[in-house]
Design a protein around this nucleic acid. Structure first.
Lengths: 135, 135
DNA sequence: CAGCATCCTTATCGATACTG
DNA sequence: CAGTATCGATAAGGATGCTG
């Protein structure tokens, strides 16, 4: 494993990606994933277990607008988490699917969602207790 | 356990928490967790494996301001993910720690961070390919 | 149906100053 | 040290109208 020689052969070591550094590209990527609509979009695609059309995604994510869904899908596609397939132009028919990487990324997000939904009673109880203490 | 009689005794079934519904409190909770600073704050506390002081958290999360850290910690405490312990008032000494629930929530978030950092080269390659296709 | 352009409102955020 | 309050800048988001 060439232990010990790495530091000699490498001229200047590049720092590993670190989300805690504001300049690191991984911070920006994390933002895209955990932004307001990114998590829900990926989760919707993972739960569907099949490609979804634009309108189908929009209907599954209550409250999202055309504009934000379009923007979110563009970001996710650019980062390599989502694939866009044009099946027809007239009438327009476009399908979106998770890439392999997208699926791996969506999994912990779906786990988080399950936890949040399952523990919502605890959260609401904690809020009530907090609000009772101070106003 | 009165199996089978539940549907009779309950008048109107309450819908289960669903983040895809904009009105559900779980949507708001998810927002607190996946907001700009929530994920990083929880991850910092989980990685530390020990309570951290306000200033320690701020130094670990590059780019966060006093204001946003304070706001984020308040939200996370109210939702029951973080505990705040005042050890002294003069000079002020306050420690923040994950609750049991907070730790469970932070785990998938840390997994996500690891994935994002590890797969950053793939993401950057995907971006380059995307930008080459159109401008 | 898919989705961009424009306009405008709202929420978020950062800087600064201040307090126990 | 650990915050809070206020303010101004900026970015995110929603509504609408339009196009292939």
């Amino acid at each position: 494993m060439s232990v010990g020689s790495d530091t000699e052969t490498v001229g200047a070591a590049i720092p590993p990606p670190n989300v805690f550094s504001s300049a690191c590209a991984s911070r920006e990527t994390l933002q895209h994933l955990t932004g307001r609509w990114g998590t829900l979009t990926l989760a919707a695609l993972l739960l569907a277990e099949a490609p979804l059309r634009f309108g189908e995604i929009r209907r599954r994510i209550d409250g999202i607008s055309d504009r934000m869904l379009s923007q979110t899908l563009n970001q996710l596609e650019r980062d390599g988490f989502v694939e866009r397939h044009v099946l027809s132009n007239i009438p327009p028919h476009v399908e979106y699917a998770l890439t392999t990487l997208g699926r791996r990324i969506a999994e912990p997000l779906l786990a988080l969602i399950g936890l949040v939904e399952g523990e919502l009673p605890s959260v609401l109880a904690a809020r009530a207790a907090y609000d009772r203490r101070d106003g």
